[in-house]
């Protein structure tokens, strides 16, 4: 299963397309310019592929910081 560290790298490179190492637990998602509805879908694709779950539209809308995504992942590890 993908480690959280590896997930962070994929999140940066494929989902919000930002420089490696930019994102940490407290990064506010809304402040990332590519955090949009397409990023929601890319995130769900990544979660489905690597952890076997997806977030509902409501759960996605409630995400505030990057650490919130990690919390969901930890529930499925």
């Amino acid at each position: 299963m993908m480690t959280v560290e590896k997930f962070k790298e994929v999140f940066e490179s494929d989902i919000v397309m930002i420089d490696p190492g930019f994102v940490d637990t407290d990064t506010v998602l809304q402040e990332l310019s590519d955090w949009d509805s397409l990023a929601y879908i890319s995130l769900n694709a990544c979660l489905d592929e690597n952890y076997g779950f997806t977030l509902t539209a409501n759960e996605l809308a409630e995400l505030s910081v990057f650490g919130d995504i990690v919390k969901h992942i930890n529930k499925h590890l």
């Binding site: 949009d36 509805s37 397409l38 929601y40 879908i41 769900n44 694709a45 489905d48 997806t54 977030l55 509902t56 539209a57 996605l60």
Partner: peptide, 22 residues
């Protein structure tokens, strides 16, 4: 996300449609 629409327009909840499809 800055998208504009009224109730007379097509609305799509992309993430939910994606989850349904998966």
């Amino acid at each position: 996300f800055g998208n504009i629409r009224s109730n007379s327009n097509l609305y799509m909840n992309g993430p939910e449609i994606f989850n349904f499809t998966l």
